[in-house]
Amino acid sequence: MVGARRTNDWGFPRWRGYGSSREATTVRICDRHGCEEKGDCPAPKAPHSKERWYFCQRHAAEYNSKWDYFEGLDKAERAARAKTEQTENAGYAEAQHYGWATSGDGSRSADEMRALEVLGLEGDADSAAIKKAWREKAKLVHPDVKPGDKDAAAEFQKLQLAYEVLKAAEERREWRG
């Protein structure tokens, strides 16, 4: 048995990995000077060039952070290009409802988020914080405090409506379990 190679499958060929071998693989290093990370993110060296830099993820993010799609265009050309992009990609707009539209965990509706904005709160505010903010703001513009002030009355109505929207949403959540 001279020249026979020994394998690690102990007679069970299915234990071998597909395409696996013991040879060393070549790993490209990041092209950023001094970086020793794996360079697996290609970036063009110049516009319309086939030559590429290969950066690690951190340096690729740094490279792309200063990228401006509208660089070198005047205001009218920017608007025209943006409108063209929007019309050409309008077919993808129907999928926007799958993403988060606002901050928070995605459990609040757009109306609730607007109501929280009126009260000056973040998307993750709880019912106690909502009630506290509503009381503090309502005390300042209540019609009994500022009689005859139409602006204060309008602001109070806006605060009242925001609080009612949030209170009804909280009751729905509690009812659902």
Rank of each mutant, 00 (worst) to 15 (best):
R22H: 14
K38P: 02
H142W: 03
W100K: 13
E37N: 08
A4G: 06
D124T: 15
K131D: 15
S49M: 02
S21N: 15
E51S: 12
K45S: 01
G177Q: 08
P47R: 12
D9L: 02
G120E: 07
A169Y: 05
A162G: 03
E77S: 12
K66M: 11
A154K: 15
F70I: 00
R28H: 14
R135A: 09
Q86N: 10
A24F: 09
V141I: 00
R172S: 12
K50R: 14
K158L: 14
L161Q: 15
G106A: 06
A79I: 05
G106W: 05
C35F: 02
V145D: 04
A110I: 11
K139H: 11
G104Y: 07
P13E: 10
K131S: 13
R173F: 02
S20Y: 09
H59F: 03
P147H: 04
Q160N: 11
L161F: 07
G148H: 10
E170F: 03
T26R: 14
L116M: 05
D149C: 04
G39C: 06
H97I: 01
E136F: 02
E62D: 13
A115P: 05
R78P: 04
V141M: 00
A60T: 03
Q157M: 12
A4K: 13
E164V: 09
V141T: 01
W175G: 09
K167P: 00
G11Y: 02
T84M: 08
W175D: 13
E174Y: 01
P47G: 03
R6A: 09
E88V: 04
P147E: 04
D111T: 01
A95F: 15
D40A: 11
A101I: 04
G17Q: 07
A138H: 07
E117K: 14
D68S: 09
G11A: 07
R32P: 01
D111W: 00
E170P: 00
V2M: 06
G177L: 04
Q96G: 13
A129G: 08
G3W: 02
D9Y: 05
T84W: 08
G106M: 05
E155Q: 15
G120L: 00
K131L: 09
E122I: 06
T25P: 00
R58L: 10
K132M: 10
Y98M: 09
R52I: 00
K158R: 15
A80M: 09
R52S: 02
E23F: 08
A82M: 13
E85T: 06
G99T: 07
D111M: 00
Q96I: 12
G3T: 07
W100H: 14
K38E: 14
A115I: 03
N8S: 10
